[in-house]
Computed example of a mutant assay.
Amino acid sequence: MRFLILLFLASPAAATEFDRPIPNAQSATAELWFALASILLIAALFAVGRVVAKR
């Protein structure tokens, strides 16, 4: 009996269609934070490059 239940659950008739999730648009606040983080990362890399070049 368990085999029949497992067979039914594994059949394509019991499967539901997969709905691909749609990502939400990025908000203006998220874009601002990303731009700020990018600028700070570039500044930090530049500072590290200057410190390493002096040695």
Rank of each mutant, 00 (worst) to 15 (best):
29 T>M: 07
29 T>L: 03
16 T>M: 13
25 A>F: 06
8 F>S: 09
36 L>W: 06
50 R>W: 04
42 I>C: 06
5 I>D: 10
40 L>D: 14
35 A>T: 00
35 A>F: 01
31 E>A: 12
15 A>W: 14
29 T>K: 04
23 P>M: 10
48 V>T: 11
44 A>F: 02
18 F>T: 07
47 A>C: 06
31 E>S: 14
9 L>R: 03
47 A>L: 00
40 L>P: 09
5 I>V: 15
16 T>I: 15
51 V>S: 15
36 L>K: 03
48 V>G: 05
13 A>Y: 12
25 A>Q: 08
22 I>L: 07
48 V>K: 11
8 F>G: 02
49 G>Y: 00
5 I>E: 06
51 V>D: 11
13 A>D: 05
41 L>S: 03
33 W>V: 13
49 G>E: 00
36 L>G: 05
29 T>E: 12
27 S>F: 08
6 L>C: 13
50 R>F: 05
36 L>Q: 06
25 A>K: 05
12 P>K: 01
28 A>W: 01
21 P>A: 03
31 E>I: 05
7 L>V: 14
2 R>I: 12
36 L>Y: 06
29 T>S: 02
17 E>M: 14
30 A>E: 04
21 P>F: 03
12 P>S: 06
35 A>H: 04
28 A>D: 00
45 L>S: 02
24 N>A: 12
20 R>L: 11
43 A>K: 05
49 G>V: 02
48 V>I: 12
34 F>C: 07
50 R>L: 04
26 Q>T: 11
34 F>Q: 14
16 T>V: 15
42 I>M: 08
15 A>Y: 08
54 K>Y: 02
51 V>I: 15
9 L>G: 00
9 L>W: 05
31 E>K: 13
40 L>M: 10
40 L>N: 15
25 A>D: 07
10 A>H: 03
34 F>T: 03
29 T>G: 11
13 A>P: 10
5 I>G: 07
14 A>F: 14
42 I>F: 12
8 F>R: 14
43 A>G: 04
43 A>Q: 04
7 L>G: 14
22 I>R: 07
42 I>W: 04
54 K>E: 03
40 L>E: 11
28 A>Y: 00
38 S>M: 09
18 F>V: 03
26 Q>D: 11
24 N>L: 13
54 K>C: 01
44 A>M: 09
52 V>R: 08
7 L>C: 05
